[in-house]
Amino acid sequence: MAFLMSLMSQRKKLILLLMTFALVASACGSSSDTATGSSGESADDTTEESTEDSTEESAEITEINLGAIPDQDPELLARNYGLLADYLTEEVGVTVNFEPVTAYEAAVSQFRVGDLDIVWFGGLTGVQARLQVEGAEAIAQRDIDAEFTSVFIATTDSGIEPVSDVAGLSAVAGRSLTFGSESSTSGRLMPQSFLDQAGVTLDDLEGEAGFSGAHDKTIALVEAGTYEVGALNSQVWKSKVEAGEVDLEKVQLIFETPTYFDYHWVARPELGDDIQQKIVDALMNLDPSNPDHATILEFFGAESFIGTESANYADIETVGRESGLIEE
C-alpha cells in the first residue's frame, strides 16, 4: 500500500518536474509579467488552507516564522532567538517560531518564498530581500547598527602597518585579501566600498579576492597566512580578541572603517501594519534592567532596539548596485 502510494506520488512529482523543466527551457519573454511578486507570494504558508484572499492578512495570521542570517554559533542562535521568539509570542499574541537557516542567500530566498515572515538581516541581505518582496519594509535595528564598522586585519609578517584613514587602505594593493561571505555587509560589501574609496579595486589585489564564507574563517585564514589581509565584522574581531582566541603575534588590526548602517529586521507585508507595529514596540520595550530581556540584548550585543526605515539603507543599495551585488 504505502509503496504504491509513494509510487503514485513519484509519478506526480515527475509531472511537476517535467513542468518545471519545460518552464526553464521554454519560458521566453512572453511569460506573464502579470504574476507580480505581491499577488503571487501572498499565498502565505502560515495560512495553511486558503491561499486566495490575501488582502485580509492580519486577521489570518496564526503563526509567524522568524529567521536570522547565520552569522554566529548555531547553538547560541537557536537558544537566544528561541527566547526572543517566546517573548514576541507573548507580546504580539501570535505564535512566533524561530526557523534556523544555513546561508545568507537561503535567508533571502526563504523570505522571498514566504517561509520566513520576519528576518534579522545584514545590511546588504536586508536590502536584497526587501527589493525582492514588494511591500516589505525595514522595521527595526539595534542601537549599534546605526554606527557599524568593519575591520581590516593583516598578517604581522606582511609588513603592512596600521593605517589611520580610508586613503591609507591603498597599502593593501598588491596583497592577497579575503572577504567573508559573498553577501556579507560587514565582511564584504562595505570593506570593498572603502577599498574602492582608497583607489583599490579587486583587480589590484594579488590573485583573486577570496571568500572565506564566515568572519571566523577569515581570521583563521589570515592567521594561517593563506591570505595577507582579511576584512570582517569588527564585533566578531573584538570578541575573538577579548576571548584570547586570536594569535596577535601573527595577525594585527590595521584599520577600522568609518560607520555605516548594518543589521536590521525586515518584515513581509502580509504581517500587516498592526502586527509589525506590535513587533517593533515589543523589540523597543526590551529593557536591560529586566534579567530576561538582558539575556536577549546581550546576545544581540546591544543596549536596546530602535526603529528604522528602509530609507536608512539607500547607501548600501547604491554600493550594492555599483558592485553588482544588487541587480536591476
Binding site: 506526480k12 512529482k13 518552464l23 519560458a27 506573464s32 514566504g114
Partner: peptide
Amino acid sequence: LWSSRTQTLAFLLA
C-alpha cells in the same frame, strides 16, 4: 509541489 506558491515561484524563477 503544486501549491500556487510553488507555481508562482517556479514562474518567477524561470
